[in-house]
Design a protein around this nucleic acid. Structure first.
Lengths: 356, 356
DNA sequence: CTGAAAGCGCTAACAA
DNA sequence: TTGTTAGCGCTTTCAG
């Protein structure tokens, strides 16, 4: 037998409705309480709360006052259960602190607001475990997932989860899920051809270190190799440096690159954050930008306009990316079959500034 | 009598379960469907879905397979109704695109995740109507609000809404609601005293234009006036320029300032974004920073480290701000009375970089 | 204008 | 191990 004494105390405290000693968790005020307190039926309370017309204005006011005084708040669960209308979208991003994602989020929030949808946000840090966990959460808590997923296992899990799902950046992987594709191939091509047209040949690449071991095809690095090859430029293996996806990561990678290959004349970075860090460090080490070394980013973050010199970049319309994803989610929820969702493509645009 | 024909057609389309022509909205698969399909009670299905122990492994698997095949997904509403455990916090921010807020959001998301809470995000743009609207949404959709609110009417509404509510930045207003206070007075004092100690006297202020008509006391502008007065420095009205809260706004304000008062030697900006825009424009107009004019920001955004010269700023621990707010929300939900919530204060810290 | 009945989809408690 | 019985709190018919 378990010791009942202890248990009873606990129960007593939680369940006790002592009007003097405030209990820890206040019991919920329900529509029935309000109905009883005002001497009407709960339907009438419901009418008052929901601003229905079929109700005596006086009664309504009386009920509203009482409800407010009692601290009544309708349960969203009970409500949602009966009128299945509130739609919640689960937005999964890698890192709120990377300016790329707030812009995507802005697009998602705007599109969602237009439709009266809610947006729950999850941050994964692109960690394997978190990505898998978050899919379970989505499954339980939202009507549709819109997600940046790095790991193939997570994508596979999402695909098998019986949950409407849209990928932000389907990224050349097998189209297990509908979503938006960012045309990195076009971007990479635009960027490198531009550099080459400006006379650069020894073009280094600072890659996101996470993609070193990636199973994903069509990474920016592979596209870089492909385009360089097409142009008949032999890439020295040392030109490619892995970088942590951050300003500091870009700086460190640049330092390593310069130690080994001081002769590169341009740097093609995985993204703007890495490019900015690299450029900053290069200048600190005495190089002139772009005369000694040019820098090309990828993303088109607005911070690129603020650094010295302003960063040339392959601009992605991140806001639109978020909006389009929500539109696709709407199609999915509207009953369109997963296979029928038209592929949306975001095409990067070269923006030339002073860093090249 | 209403014309029934039209109505009937509508009803027929929505309710028709034609197996050939897919209807627009597929009817929800419920636990009962799965139960019937597998020949067990719905309780058993529930056990299988929720990984309970009291169930034959074989039965469980059979049910799980069927559920998956049928596309069954438990309703979060029905579930929430019975086990009242999932807590959702409504995070209201002014602008996702201002780097200040993603940092706060990071703190909120992290603290929420630790507790297993959901976070729904709303963006108001500090618009009067949106702020008011969002409070209605919160009231309906979340368990507790954590919000940046600019307009006093919105704060008042939130205070009267019978919803647990925490303010991010209570900002010297009447303590209608618990929340975190950012100690702008301390920050302003640190910043201005530092500038004065460096010999500056003609210190301009670029204020957020939204606060021109604000009812809030203790704005950064008023604190600036107060400290300058304490130091015996007479402030020329023209030193104060309103700026749109953005880099471009800061730039425009700086240009106006220089047109009228080229003799100022330092600029105290409402925040980093404005400071960065101002500094950029000043340099473009030929001023040397900090020799001709020094710049001091407020926020401590990481972008301040990337500009040229790096920005001196009053750093606010935004991440901690978000975390603390969630901790206060937890107290509120735990039953602590609103008045008992201890005031949390975030103290800005002067970070000296090359812009001063 | 108001109330009674029914049920949204699920799980906790109790029986079998 | 499984099924039955009660709700969770609300809104939607349908009667009065």
């Amino acid at each position: 037998m378990p010791p009942p004494a202890v248990r009873d105390i606990t129960k007593g405290r939680r369940g006790g409705y002592s009007p003097i000693v405030p209990t820890n968790r206040k019991p919920r005020v329900t529509i029935d309480h309000v109905a009883r307190a005002t001497g009407v039926s709960r339907q009438t309370v419901s009418r008052a709360i929901n601003n229905k017309t079929e109700i005596d204005p006086e009664t309504r006011q009386r009920i509203l006052d009482a409800a407010r005084a009692m601290g009544y708040r309708p349960s969203r669960f009970a409500r949602g259960l009966v009128r299945q209308d509130v739609i919640t979208i689960g937005l999964v991003i890698a890192d709120v602190l990377n300016p790329f994602f707030p812009e995507v989020t802005a697009g998602v929030l705007q599109a969602a607001e237009r439709r009266g949808w809610q947006v729950v946000v999850y941050n994964t840090g692109s960690e394997y475990r978190k990505e898998l966990e978050v899919i379970d959460m989505l499954f339980d808590q939202v009507d549709v997932g819109v997600a940046f997923l790095f790991h193939n296992d997570a994508i596979a899990k999402a695909a098998g989860a019986n949950l409407p799902f849209i990928l932000l950046d389907t990224g050349g992987r097998a189209p297990a899920l509908p979503g938006v594709r960012i045309d990195f191939e076009s971007g990479t091509r635009q960027g490198l051809e531009y550099l080459i047209s400006r006379g650069h040949r020894r073009i280094a690449m600072l890659d996101d270190e996470m993609y070193l071991s990636s199973e994903a095809p069509n990474t920016r690095r592979e596209l870089y190799l492909k385009v360089m090859d097409e142009r008949g430029i032999t890439v020295d293996a040392g030109w490619i440096q892995p970088a942590h996806n951050s300003v500091e990561g870009g700086a460190a990678a640049m330092e390593r690159l310069l130690a080994a290959h001081r002769d590169v004349t341009a740097v093609f970075a995985y993204n703007d954050m890495i490019a900015i860090g690299a450029q900053l460090r290069a200048r600190k080490l005495g190089l002139r930008v772009p005369e000694d070394c040019a820098f090309l980013g990828f993303d088109g973050l607005s911070v690129g306009e603020l650094v010295e010199p302003p960063l040339t970049t392959l601009h992605i319309d991140k806001r639109r990316l978020g909006e389009v994803a929500v539109e696709q989610a709407a199609l999915l929820l509207g009953g369109t079959d997963e296979g029928e969702i038209p592929e949306a493509v975001i095409e990067p645009q070269l923006i030339v500034r002073a860093s090249t």
